[in-house]
Amino acid sequence: MSFEQPRGLTSMSRTDLAIETSGLVKSFGGTRAVDGVDLAVRAGSVYGVLGPNGAGKTTTIRMLATLLRPDAGSARVLGHDVVAEADEVRGLVSLTGQMASVDEELTGRENLVLLGRLLGLKWRVAKDRAADLLDAFGLADASGRLVKHYSGGMRRRLDIAASIVVTREVMFLDEPTTGLDPRSRNQVWDIVRALAAEGTTILLCTQYLDEADQLADGIAVIDHGRVIAEGTPSQLKASIGSGALHVRLLDPDQRPVAERLLARELSTVHLEPDPAALSAPCADGNRAAEAVAELSRAGVRVASFSLGQPSLDEVFLALTGHPADDQTEEAEIAEEELA
């Protein structure tokens, strides 16, 4: 029988871990893509790996999925070493890669039947399973179409469907909603929640704090191949300030007045690059509403305002003191300078 484990890393015994890495390192030429990553993912949880482009998320996932051999350190999936017992690991995991990991030159149905056959299903069973999955994922109408004609959201759903043709203990999802419209993103989120409810351990790489917050039980923030912060979403948000009021004014000349008023109501105020915009950390909706009302009373004309979660940029600024720049580009520029 299972019982509820208290949350948090300290209370975890080793056997509860579905994924465990220590000192994982992978370099490409001069770039240390992954530079000593330690992860501990509890079985049955959704674990978010949050970081900007080029931080080393995909490289980490590829090592865990036995596609890349670590240069140093070790990684275990459900107790199996990803190098020494790669074959066992492959029998336990499934990968939904960042590049669509479905065959664009086949139809949606053919993709799922192919995977079913490759995973050991009989023809009949593979076909039935494909039909059930296409139906459940809202792809039945498109099942006979070539995947290259699918929309981004359909492709993602098919990709995830391909990962659950058979039961898998651990799923790797690499940026499952990047580039999707909000509706498709919500559909993918629903699928991830349903998977989590079935007890699948999910390692989710993402660039969106929002996504990690919505789906994950634990989050590791990763930057230049290193874990720079780790904890539950609420711990993480508490450590960086959990939200911000964003205000845009009709008249940029009124910004000094607005700045003074907001500073009084909410303490620190950031002036944004846009001369009509400013923001202030704030977690409480009522306090934000008060502050906006105060602006109105003082005659400051507000074009729009929103209360949002901190962006990944703000998270990075808070954690590292530098913004979450695109680290792929940075590495490429460095390479060009060397050449």
Binding site: A65, R90, L95, G97, M99, S101, V102
Partner: peptide, 9 residues
């Protein structure tokens, strides 16, 4: 293509 990663895993 990304599908090769799936095959290899």
């Amino acid at each position: 293509k990304g599908v090769v990663d799936r095959f290899r895993s």
